[in-house]
Nucleic acid binder design. Sequence first.
DNA 1: AAACCCTCTTGACACTGTCAAGTTCTCTTG
DNA 2: CAAGAGAACTTGACAGTGTCAAGAGGGTTT
Lengths: 201, 201
Amino acid sequence: MARQRSTPATPEASVDVQRAVLDGALDIIATEGAEAVSMREVARRAGVSHQAPYHYFGDRAGIFAAISEEGFRRFTEEFRRALELPGDVAANCLRAYVSFAVAHKGHYRVMFRSDICGIRTHEQTMKAADEAFLTLLDLAEAIHPQRDAADAISLPVALWAQAHGLATLFIDGPLLDKLPPDTNLDELVNKVAQLTEWNTK
Amino acid sequence: MARQRSTPATPEASVDVQRAVLDGALDIIATEGAEAVSMREVARRAGVSHQAPYHYFGDRAGIFAAISEEGFRRFTEEFRRALELPGDVAANCLRAYVSFAVAHKGHYRVMFRSDICGIRTHEQTMKAADEAFLTLLDLAEAIHPQRDAADAISLPVALWAQAHGLATLFIDGPLLDKLPPDTNLDELVNKVAQLTEWNTK
DNA sequence: AAACCCTCTTGACACTGTCAAGTTCTCTTG
DNA sequence: CAAGAGAACTTGACAGTGTCAAGAGGGTTT
């Protein structure tokens, strides 16, 4: 009655454990919030001892860092796809951004919480975040290619703020309580996109 | 050597304890993040037993709810002042919004974290949040008074998203790491305000 | 004087993150 | 093919945590 796993120490199984730990954590984050994640609970859900997660992730922050990294990678992928879609690139990207956040609530909730994942100490996570930031610069470039080189940052920041604000308000904020219950979120995002004009004079 | 407080059971002293608990919590939130708040640590900082905070706030979420409520009240006050300033009302309010968030980091970090303060169970906090939301509607009205009654929500949402996004990126996000180190944040907010035009056709 | 409440305190419990020290398997090296 | 190395865990312990329960002491009311 020592253990349930049939092939415990193979590399294949270890990936399973790693994945199970992350999935367990993501599930808790999405349903109960990041605070509710405990090393022992994710270990329990993964069917391993309370110390197994430490082997892969070092500490609690390590789990969040891994989730953050994965989130930024997937985000970059999806955002790049939206960048290449025909039509209004700003609206397409805003939609993609918010869709990602809503669909990957667990990831998104962690991605911008540097307080819990100690991003500065996890190089891979930082690199993934940088990569994501580059796609944002590409969007700004696509919207307004010949803008002032001396102020290359205002438009990306404005774009990011709008998208990030919308996303966090949808996920965590008290916004949803204020909306009429039959509100279509996709439509609302579209309207916000139509409402916004970037003054590129 | 039973206790240090000279007048323990007077109402005046009780306000002190309440305030000390909140201030201790706010200090921790602003410097280390909300996760780092522990009932016992705030009690220790306030110089009371580990159960005293429970008397006033019920549980951990109660402390966050009280902070959130206080935050929304102060926010409403400051935002209303900005609404009545002469000049570009949208720019004034965006500045006021971001200033509030940066100056009251501890409060702001909690105000939009319904996961940790269980806002739905704290009526006073909800009311304060509603009040704040109303000021936002007033801003939308000031920007574009005769807008379509059937879509009264898009512009407030768009405004809120921009301000909230900017604020959270400044406070918690990885944005600051991406900016040139000599960036003036006030100026950046101004530029974003100038860059934005609300398509009110 | 008695009852009562407000403002706390002390004590206990199950649970948490994490350090330390095994244990069991697989894979490489001699 | 034996031996050692290392990966992938496990069990055990510790201090710290949130919170329930049961007071204790003063002020006010009756």
